[in-house]
């Protein structure tokens, strides 16, 4: 579903991604972990071209999005992203947040988009907030709306860029519950997170990044019981207390 090949990314003199190679199969749940500044957010943001790789190739669902003139807006319709800061549209109601892109971009009728939007709101437990504005919701609720907004695009891939990092501790679980529930489906998920419990529970593949490289990848069992690299062990020992 997603093929990352020989990707490098520079921010000025900063070399933030170093020769990254990664395959995400259709339906696979990949969790990317690693310390701050390891390049994991940059990597996931390359997957929908919010960042453009300096060199290398990224193929999403058969489309080389790093090619010049790649149909990137078309690809983005089926690659949804959930952001750390939620990024809901504050001037729109919750339901409008869900229906805006489906009606304007995918040209789905307003009725149909509203109907499916309400169903997704129901699924994240916020149907009664359909007419509220984002500012009236808690952080956890906003992030659940953001997930519903992503789902209402009927994506084949969902990218989560540290979805719980901006949340109060007591709100993290409600968002993780929604994500765990989502992971039971066939949708492809790439999740950048510090939530090791989530990684253990849903990941097919765990990627550990440090200093712009992928240091280690493997199943959660391998990862949490028998990591190879000392750097991985150190990271895990600090984070799993």
């Amino acid at each position: 579903m997603i093929k990352v090949q020989g990707v490098n990314k520079f921010f000025g003199p900063l070399h933030v991604l170093k020769d990254i190679n990664l395959n995400v199969d259709s339906g696979e749940k990949v969790v990317v972990i690693g310390p701050s500044g390891s390049g994991k957010s940059t990597l996931i943001r390359c997957m929908n071209l919010l960042e453009t790789p300096s060199t290398g190739q990224i193929v999403v669902d058969g489309v080389d999005i790093t090619a010049p003139k790649a149909p990137i807006t078309k690809v983005r319709e089926s690659v949804a992203m959930v952001f750390q800061q939620f990024n809901l549209y504050p001037h729109k109601t919750v339901l409008e947040n869900l229906t805006l892109a489906p009606t304007l971009i995918k040209k789905i009728s307003r009725d149909e988009a509203s109907e499916s939007g309400l169903a997704f709101l129901e699924r994240v437990g916020l149907r009664e907030k359909a007419d509220a504005y984002p500012a009236q919701l808690s952080g956890g609720q906003q992030q659940r709306v953001a997930i519903a907004r992503a789902l209402n695009m009927r994506p084949t891939v969902m990218l989560f860029d540290e979805p719980t990092s901006a949340l109060d501790p007591e709100m993290i679980q409600e968002v993780l519950d929604v994500m765990v529930d989502l992971a039971k489906e066939g949708i492809t998920m790439v999740v950048v997170t510090h939530e090791m419990g989530f990684a253990k529970q849903v990941a097919d593949q765990v990627i550990f990044m440090d200093g712009g490289t992928i240091l280690e990848k493997g199943s959660p069992e391998h990862f949490f019981t028998n990591p190879e690299h000392d750097r991985t062990k150190l990271f895990l020992s600090r984070i799993l207390r």
Binding site: N48, L50, T73, V79, N87, L100, A101, I105
Partner: peptide, 8 residues
């Protein structure tokens, strides 16, 4: 970015 990510 949110708008871009939705295909705008």
């Amino acid at each position: 970015e949110a708008a871009y990510s939705q295909g705008f």
